[in-house]
């Protein structure tokens, strides 16, 4: 094997290639890889953080839900109580109204009865006068004996 100028040529080519690689090839590729590694690491960390946040949020939601339920239960209980109260009041009002209506009815009925009785009494007086006049015939002057009839009517 003969060593010759080729060796020098290859040595120079080698140096040039290495320098080119060092200047223009290695840094951008290596930087890209390292930047991506960092990006991925950041992404993973962010994911972990988000998971933790989610857990916290879920715990908060559970707490709030519990509170809301308790509040709702309280509101419902209050509403029930008020409804009962209202029903009770209504019942009472109805009762009084009923009594009032019944009393009014009673009063009306009483008044009607009194009126009828008066009327009846008047008719009985007329009938009594007519009967008596038939019995006595003319002997009774309507005007002269009206006081008697009046008295009779009042007695009825």
């Amino acid at each position: 094997m003969n060593i010759n100028m080729t060796l020098i040529g290859e040595l120079i080519a080698f140096i040039v290639f290495v320098l080119f690689c060092m200047k223009f090839v290695w840094p951008p590729l290596n930087n890209a890889i390292e930047a991506r590694q960092k990006k991925i690491a950041d992404g993973l960390a962010a994911g972990e953080r988000a998971e933790k946040d989610l857990e916290l949020a879920q715990a908060k939601i559970a707490d709030e839900l519990k509170e809301a339920k308790a509040q709702a239960a309280e509101i419902i209980a209050q509403a029930k109580k008020r409804a009962e109260q209202t029903v009770e009041e209504g019942k009472q009002r109805g009762e009084t109204e009923r009594e009032a209506i019944i009393a009014a009815g009673h009063a009306e009925v009483e008044a009607e009865r009194n009126r009828l009785r008066e009327e009846l009494r008047k008719q009985v007086a007329v009938l009594a006068v007519a009967g008596a006049s038939k019995i006595i015939e003319r002997e009774i002057d309507k005007d002269a004996h009206s006081d008697i009839v009046e008295k009779l009517v009042a007695e009825l």
Partner: peptide
Amino acid sequence: VPTTDLNMTAGLAIG
């Protein structure tokens, strides 16, 4: 095949 030439491999080795 350049690497079957001793000049080539020696050039690398000397570098």
